[in-house]
């Protein structure tokens, strides 16, 4: 499988990364080198193998459904690039 510049444009959009038109072809080339190398996994017969989903088999612990924190508005907003009246300020989303 080989990646072309349209695919790079599409996945960059999905990843919310802006890539200039000049940058598309070199990036496609870079990705193809890596994807070509990982293609060696196709040599392995995995038809009867379950995918590994966690490194250590454990059952998830349960905890009581109680509030453990809250009322920390100042701490939540403290690193925001822009705030107003106790809210995050973001670019206009709805026209």
């Amino acid at each position: 499988m080989s990646v072309d510049t349209d695919t790079v444009r599409r996945i960059a959009k999905l990843a919310r990364l802006a890539i200039s038109d000049d940058g598309l072809a070199p990036m496609a080339q870079e990705l193809n080198v890596i994807l070509g190398w990982v293609d060696q996994l196709n040599e392995v017969d995995v038809s009867a193998v379950e995918p590994m989903t966690s490194a250590v088999q454990t059952s998830l612990k349960k905890r009581s459904d109680t509030v453990t924190d809250g009322h920390i508005q100042e701490a939540v907003l403290h690193n925001a690039p822009l705030t107003e009246h106790g809210f995050f300020v973001v670019p206009k989303v709805v026209e």
């Binding site: 996994l41 392995v44 995995v46 995918p51 590994m52």
Partner: peptide
């Protein structure tokens, strides 16, 4: 083709 296959290979390595 990629992610699921890699996770299966991971099982083989484990």
């Amino acid at each position: 083709a990629y992610y699921l296959r890699a996770q299966r290979v991971r099982t083989l390595i484990a």
